[in-house]
């Protein structure tokens, strides 16, 4: 493993200064479950790791009626799924953070890190996209916000510039009669990277017979996690039926442009997009019905 320096920043501004100084030779260290492995396996080189786990804002969970849930970017998965409020309001996010790596990885890995690593197969990103999450980015010229669906730009690349880093993720308070669901397909039952991932969120009418609105997002079928806009839009106002869910699944399949690699073939992935989209939507719908 190459040598590098390590600084545990105490404030957002200190972290920004360090990042600005070193440009692409500095990286934020959050849970380290991707970063440390990448440096060790020579897939990434750097001079400096900036640990942000001592910066309070980056590690807190807060709820407010204005912002909804504000999730410090470094909050590890286990803190998220042990939070009863997140559990009840954002079950799709819980689905995702409960299956990232093993329990050991969940003790460190964060949703912010999952986003910034920008893997097309990141489990939490589709879950955040369907929850309409916003990424809060701090930088030398202040703070800006980017929708989770626009955060990743290519494998390993994000919208962030040198000197910027992700401090928190804001997720709006869900509507009544809504729920969310995330699932992935992997060959084993745990410990794999998604062959395909699918997240869905739904808002149903009072009677739970129709969709008021829905969102679908996909993982591992394009260079970035994808928001399935057409699939999402076509559900709005429609009565819940296998037929309409199948149509959404087909629309999701239409935007998937998967590759073949050691985790799955393009054909298999395309096929799975349909299966998982259906299961994610049905899962979210059933959750609304169950909480009646």
């Amino acid at each position: 493993m190459q040598a590098f320096e390590y600084v545990a920043a105490k404030s957002i501004s200190e972290a920004i200064d360090l990042l600005s100084e070193r440009g692409d030779q500095a990286r934020i260290l959050s849970g380290g479950t991707d970063l440390i492995v990448q440096v060790r396996e020579k897939r990434r080189s750097l001079e400096l790791m900036v640990d942000v786990k001592q910066i309070p804002e980056v590690n807190e969970i807060s709820h407010s009626s204005a912002d909804g849930l504000v999730l410090g970017a470094s909050t590890p998965c286990y803190k998220i799924y042990n939070d009863p409020d997140i559990k009840s309001a954002y079950p799709g996010l819980i689905d995702a953070v409960s299956i990232i790596g093993g329990i050991q990885v969940q003790g460190r890995a964060s949703v912010g890190g999952n986003l910034c690593n920008a893997s097309p197969a990141a489990d939490s990103t589709p879950a955040l996209i369907v929850l309409d999450a916003t990424c809060v980015i701090a930088g030398p010229s202040g703070t800006r916000e980017v929708a989770a669906k626009d955060f990743c730009t290519a494998p390993g690349q994000t919208t962030m510039e040198n000197g910027e880093f992700l401090t928190s993720i804001k997720i709006p308070t869900p509507d009544t009669n809504s729920s969310s669901f995330y699932l992935r397909f992997i060959p084993r039952n745990e410990m794999d990277i998604a062959v395909v991932g699918a997240g869905a969120s739904v808002v149903l009418d009072e009677s739970h017979k129709s969709f008021v609105s829905a969102h679908v997002a996909l993982g591992a079928v394009a260079p970035t996690p994808l928001y399935a806009e057409e699939a999402s839009n076509l559900l709005s106002g429609q009565e819940i039926s296998d037929e309409i869910i199948n149509q959404a699944a087909e629309a999701a399949q239409a935007i998937a442009r998967p590759i073949s690699d050691m985790r799955g073939t393009a054909n298999q992935r395309k096929h799975l997009v349909g299966v998982l989209t259906r299961r994610a939507l049905n899962g979210a719908v059933n959750r609304v019905k169950e909480t009646k």
Partner: peptide, 8 residues
């Protein structure tokens, strides 16, 4: 619990 191989 953590994997100590991926903690500095």
């Amino acid at each position: 619990i953590v994997n100590s191989c991926i903690v500095l």
